[in-house]
């Protein structure tokens, strides 16, 4: 496998109310082409900052050290990747990432026009194909629907369609399933897995949920307080975590095979 991008000594600082906050400290990792990499961390771990840094979406006021190097194939032309064309980004809350007063079909078609230079007719045809690919029922009707007419899960499918319509090499999903209930979450994860496999995309899956990430990722990186504490193959991270923090995260997961707290309390003196 060849690396798609390489992050070296990345440090990001924000100023908030005059106080400097370090969001990331000296993070180095390589993202391989066509791999599914999960970035795990709790609030304040810097996982979203890492996603934004890779997408080039950090605010101008942020202090950035280190570098992110891309290894795009020669035919891509530009050295720096284009958000939308080379990188697809799916946010946590589809209600705020979709324009509330524009039909969703037009929002997807607009991405096509901007990045692939097609006319409206072809762009709409592409949008419809994408709505089919994200398994939305009745794509003809959804093409002309407004975001408020769709459920949370449907909106996230639309957001995914818009993110991948230009055929990006990298798909970043930043807590893309956390606002959804478990059933819809499982469906969206299945969808992402399928789309990534079909298009040979690289996936950066940002999540607070290590168990969910384990069902999807080839490799897992664990961030804590802005530092990379563990990075390895999913099986190794789950079965033999090297860092105590990773183990604590795994222990805290309440799966259907965990011992109920009710019992634990009962046996405690």
């Amino acid at each position: 496998m060849t690396a798609l991008l390489s992050i070296r000594d990345l440090a990001v600082r924000y100023r908030r109310d005059g106080v400097e906050v370090t969001a990331l400290k000296g993070v180095s990792l390589d993202v391989e082409g066509s791999e599914r990499l999960a970035i795990i961390g709790e609030s304040g771990s810097g996982k979203s900052t890492l996603a934004l840094a890779v997408a080039g979406l950090l605010p101008g006021s942020a202090g950035i050290d280190g570098r992110i190097e891309w290894f795009l194939p020669a035919d891509a032309g530009a050295k720096a990747p284009h958000l939308g064309r080379d990188i697809g980004f799916v946010f946590q809350d589809p209600s705020s990432s979709l324009d509330p007063i524009m039909p969703v079909g037009k929002q997807i078609a607009e991405v096509v026009r901007t990045h692939l230079g097609l006319g409206w007719r072809d762009a709409y045809a592409r949008a419809k194909t994408l709505l089919k690919r994200v398994h939305l029922p009745n794509p003809d009707a959804i093409l002309h629907a407004y975001p408020h007419q769709l459920s949370g899960g449907q909106k996230q499918r639309v957001a995914i369609a818009a993110a991948i319509v230009a055929g990006p090499r990298l798909l970043i999903a930043d807590e893309a399933t956390s606002a959804l209930d478990t059933i819809v979450q499982a469906e969206i994860v299945t969808l992402i897995r399928q789309l990534v496999a079909e298009d040979g995309m690289t996936l950066l899956f940002i999540s607070h949920d290590i168990a969910l990430a384990a069902t999807l990722a080839d490799r897992i990186a664990v961030l804590r307080h802005g530092e990379l504490v563990e990075f390895g193959e999913t099986r190794q991270v789950i079965e033999a975590p090297r860092h105590a923090y990773t183990r604590a995260l795994l222990d805290a997961y309440l799966g259907l095979d965990a011992q109920p707290l009710l019992d634990r309390q009962g046996t405690r003196v």
Partner: peptide, 18 residues
């Protein structure tokens, strides 16, 4: 049906007992 779907949707951690 919905109970089955909720159970099926839960991610499972297949951990070796460490």
């Amino acid at each position: 049906a919905i109970g089955k779907a909720l159970v099926a949707a839960m991610p499972k951690l297949n951990r070796e007992t460490t």
